[in-house]
């Protein structure tokens, strides 16, 4: 016999996951405001958006193989030249999709 009624377990799991996620989002913001706005911490926070974004993409590019790198390079170049995120994204996705049609 399960210890918890299924409905109660469901409620606990969802509300727990929701609360944890919410307080991570808000907590990061409030924590950053409590810490000093100068010196090392300022440098740290200013570098953070770029380094998070790099960390989000690099393993994904690597997983897509050589064509992933080609697609990423073209995407970055197009974004830089045209300033159009959508066109740049579309070009990258098209290259990866086409590369998967190639016989392995």
């Amino acid at each position: 016999m399960p210890v918890l009624n299924h409905d109660i377990a469901l409620l606990l799991a969802i509300s727990g996951a929701a609360l944890v996620t919410y307080f991570l989002r808000l907590g990061g913001l409030l924590l950053a405001e409590k810490l000093p706005r100068s010196g090392a911490f300022k440098t740290f926070l200013e570098a953070l958006p770029g380094t998070i974004l790099i960390s989000l993409v690099v393993p994904g590019i690597m997983a897509a193989g050589v064509w992933g790198w080609v697609a990423a390079a073209l995407t970055a170049l197009l974004a830089r030249k045209t300033g159009n995120t959508f066109v740049a994204m579309l070009a990258g996705v098209t290259i990866v999709a086409l590369s998967r049609l190639l016989p392995a």
């Binding site: 958006p49 994904g60 974004a79 995120t85 994204m89």
Partner: peptide, 11 residues
């Protein structure tokens, strides 16, 4: 990956 890469260009 492509969206984040495109945005990265501005970072």
């Amino acid at each position: 990956v492509a969206v984040f890469t495109a945005l990265l260009a501005g970072f």
